[in-house]
Design a protein around this nucleic acid. Structure first.
Lengths: 114, 114
DNA sequence: TTCCTATATGCTAATATTGGAATATAGTTA
DNA sequence: TAACTATATTCCAATATTAGCATATAGGAA
């Protein structure tokens, strides 16, 4: 496959590689359509930041916008992002459980050595 | 939800936000388990680069490794990455089709104006 | 028209990521 | 043991991303 397609994929992941943008996506996933000001209020972020993050997500096709009078409404256009987040969450949870179990075991071993 | 979980999500996406690492994932998805040297050969990348990219993917739990004698074999641990790539591909294709149709339309209009 | 409100963009210093070359490590074989 | 092979790590200059602030634009109301 051509190199360009991998650059396109990478730019999608790059757009997703920011905690604030992921919060925005979760917000849009649960609330459906939202305007810039409401996103900023909910996440407690200043307006220019919200606009910039939204434009990053929009440029790669993850979300889309619709102008309605003064406000601009954004919504998710790539629902698989939400599916992926759900799956990643499972993996993260499993990892944390493993680490927790390991530390419990190590603590138990230290106690036994006494 | 706590901020940390979004940082974890973001670090997963950050790991995926590189064309070479996506190529590695596709390779592992189609070939199953592979050692560092075979990945390097297939993608024509020097060994230290491959190792570095693999460690980025491993650190966030996307892939896992198993030592067998001298070689280290890597395989995918988060299959939803592959699902997501498939879905992203659909969106990218649709976007390209739209752009192509638009440029055809514009060319037709320019011809009509003559 | 002027004012107001919602949104977008530009600028810049601080920070993070990358690629490439050199080097280190850890098993394996002789 | 010494030499070899596969893999990992370190260092650094170049490049990209970010946060924060200031400013621009566009549509609606007065």
């Amino acid at each position: 496959m051509s190199n360009d397609i991998y650059d396109m994929y990478a730019s999608i992941f790059k757009a997703l590689a920011h905690p604030t943008r992921l919060k925005i996506i979760e917000l849009l996933a649960t609330h459906g359509e939202m305007c810039v000001c409401n996103i900023g209020e909910k996440l407690n972020i200043d307006q220019p930041s919200v606009s910039k993050h939204l434009s990053v997500l929009k440029n790669v096709g993850i979300i889309e916008s619709k102008k309605q009078g003064l406000t601009v409404n954004y919504k998710i256009r790539m629902p698989c992002v939400v599916d992926f987040l759900r799956c990643a969450n499972e993996v993260i949870k499993a990892d944390l459980n493993d680490k927790f179990a390991l530390s419990r075991k190590m603590i138990a071993e230290i106690k036994e050595e006494k």
